[in-house]
Computed example of a mutant assay.
Amino acid sequence: MTSLYIHVPFCLRKCPYCDFFSLPLNASQLEGFPQLVIAHLEQERHRDRWQGPFSTVFFGGGTPSLLPPRAVGLILQHADRLFGLSRDAEISLEANPGTVTAGKLLGYHGAGINRLSFGVQSLNDRSLARLGRIHSAAEARLAFRWARQAGFDNVGCDLIFALPDQPPKAPWPILNPSFSLARSIFPVTAWASSPKPPLPARWKRGTCNRRPRRSMPKVSCCCMND
């Protein structure tokens, strides 16, 4: 199986817990990004180091959902032309609920994306604010409804648990049937410290409480199906 990962580094705002590489959004750089990716794909095709067809393609970030659907479609067209895409290829895009609309998700589906991964992290507005997220819990729920209406059957939802000052059961309301997330996968990640992002650094200054590891729920992921 051959896979292609495309890192889209741009963010509207850097989340204080994140240590992935990202850059402040620059409109001209975002506009030129697809051509840079295509040029790199063509370079690798000429070097003959990559073997197609691709079984999976993943747009990660950063915030890939800042790319317009036409840009995503253009990248996929050239990836298919140069290396080929398997007929049943899983083509995923990470999305921030605060950067999508119903029309945009419909456009991604038409461009060839068949799996979405929403970076929800929490359905508690207070926790979202502390995490520096640009979306609300209501916007996350709305993004899921839009995704279903756009035709996406495969939708993931990233969650973070064991946040500072978070009750142990705080992540689980997202699994409530009222959220209507049948056939969705929930990667659930424990809050972890890193020396680089500013939010974990606040622990050292005593301005943010850290949950003791022994009090963390023991869970890696949850899955809901029809």
Score class of each variant (00 low, 15 high):
29 Q>W: 13
18 C>Y: 09
206 G>Q: 06
13 R>V: 00
173 P>G: 08
23 L>H: 03
87 R>P: 00
161 F>Y: 15
70 R>Y: 13
141 R>W: 12
50 W>N: 02
77 Q>W: 05
52 G>D: 06
7 H>E: 05
4 L>V: 11
189 T>W: 01
189 T>C: 06
90 E>R: 14
194 S>A: 15
189 T>H: 12
132 G>S: 09
85 L>I: 05
221 C>S: 15
151 G>C: 02
202 R>V: 02
77 Q>L: 11
125 D>V: 11
9 P>N: 05
177 P>H: 12
177 P>K: 13
6 I>F: 05
57 V>Y: 07
184 S>M: 04
100 V>F: 06
62 G>L: 06
15 C>H: 03
199 L>Y: 06
19 D>V: 03
64 P>H: 12
199 L>K: 00
116 L>R: 12
11 C>S: 11
162 A>L: 11
100 V>S: 07
157 C>H: 00
49 R>V: 12
137 A>G: 10
66 L>P: 01
2 T>C: 07
89 A>I: 02
55 S>M: 00
20 F>Y: 14
60 G>K: 10
205 R>W: 05
102 A>M: 02
129 A>I: 06
110 G>W: 03
218 K>I: 15
2 T>V: 03
180 S>H: 14
110 G>V: 00
18 C>F: 12
52 G>E: 05
47 R>S: 12
176 N>W: 11
88 D>F: 01
16 P>Q: 09
156 G>N: 15
13 R>M: 06
214 R>Y: 11
59 F>L: 13
143 A>L: 02
226 D>A: 15
113 I>N: 02
160 I>L: 15
39 A>K: 14
24 P>T: 07
3 S>K: 08
74 L>A: 13
201 A>E: 13
30 L>N: 06
97 P>N: 10
124 N>T: 07
180 S>I: 03
42 E>L: 11
28 S>W: 00
163 L>F: 10
5 Y>T: 11
26 N>P: 02
185 I>G: 12
205 R>F: 04
214 R>I: 15
212 P>T: 06
206 G>Y: 10
117 S>E: 02
179 F>P: 01
75 I>C: 04
68 P>S: 13
23 L>A: 04
112 G>Y: 07
112 G>K: 02
1 M>A: 15
198 P>L: 07
128 L>A: 03
105 L>T: 07
28 S>A: 13
35 Q>G: 10
83 F>H: 11
117 S>K: 13
64 P>K: 11
219 V>N: 01
132 G>A: 07
155 V>K: 08
119 G>M: 02
138 A>P: 07
58 F>Y: 15
218 K>Y: 09
27 A>G: 08
24 P>F: 09
189 T>E: 13
140 A>H: 12
41 L>H: 09
221 C>K: 14
54 F>P: 05
165 D>K: 11
187 P>W: 03
96 N>E: 12
222 C>T: 14
195 P>M: 00
120 V>I: 15
196 K>Y: 08
27 A>S: 13
152 F>H: 07
61 G>M: 05
177 P>V: 05
166 Q>F: 08
26 N>L: 08
226 D>F: 14
25 L>R: 12
148 R>C: 06
111 A>N: 03
91 I>H: 03
202 R>P: 01
87 R>Y: 02
188 V>F: 06
130 R>H: 13
118 F>M: 10
178 S>R: 15
122 S>L: 04
